[in-house]
Design a protein around this nucleic acid. Structure first.
Length: 176
DNA sequence: TGTACGGCACCGT
DNA sequence: ACGGTGCCGTACA
């Protein structure tokens, strides 16, 4: 079964939602279609392995758009995470509970899943998160610094955090 | 005292 | 072996 996708135009650019039964992939907004395709490639999605379709849930597109307008929205939708190992799922689960506009450290997450010394493994797991926003890994920071966001670049993490904190994105025209 | 940096332990994939 | 880390010791000011 091919991946169904829909493109979503947001204030920060073009993003993409991918699903089969449940939501599998979300690409953060990109300024150009070319960049979006590059991100798709990063997740191993080839050109002919997806088909465009109508959004899988009512209002999901509007909710995502509202997020990038600075609205305090909640994204609770069924996510396809079965393919991940248990530790990774537990990590995702703990991260999904972090409220909008707040942050926890990698260590905090490790403690929450009862493996207080696994903070580094938490970071590694989050590096594989295919569902930013739905699993808000940008809300997980290092104890002494912001930590990483290698897939989209640290600037993007800063952008999302400032969007949630101030309700606006100060440098949205130049931050990506 | 404060802080900046290096080294190493930790832990799942 | 490799990280989106944390912590402690040491070296300066």
């Amino acid at each position: 079964m091919v991946l169904s996708v829909c493109f979503i135009s947001t204030r920060l650019g073009l993003s993409l939602l991918g699903w089969r039964e449940k939501i599998e992939l979300f690409i953060l907004p990109q300024k150009t279609e070319e960049n979006l395709l590059a991100q798709l490639d990063r997740w191993g999605v080839k050109k002919d392995s997806f088909q465009e379709a109508l959004p899988p849930f009512p209002a999901i597109v509007e909710t995502i758009q509202a997020y990038f307008e600075g609205m305090r929205v909640t994204l609770s939708y069924p996510l396809a995470l079965e393919r991940f190992p248990l530790f990774t799922r537990r990590t995702f689960d703990a991260v999904a509970r972090i409220p909008y506009g707040t942050t926890l450290t990698y260590k905090d997450i490790a403690k929450k899943i009862a493996l207080p010394h696994a903070s580094r493994a938490v970071g590694r797991a989050l590096g594989r998160n295919p569902l930013p926003l739905f699993i808000p890994c940008h809300r997980v920071v290092g104890k002494y610094n912001l930590g990483g966001f290698s897939g989209y670049g640290l600037r993007y993490k800063i952008l999302l955090l400032s969007l949630e904190l101030s309700g606006s994105c100060p440098h949205s025209h130049c931050s990506l």
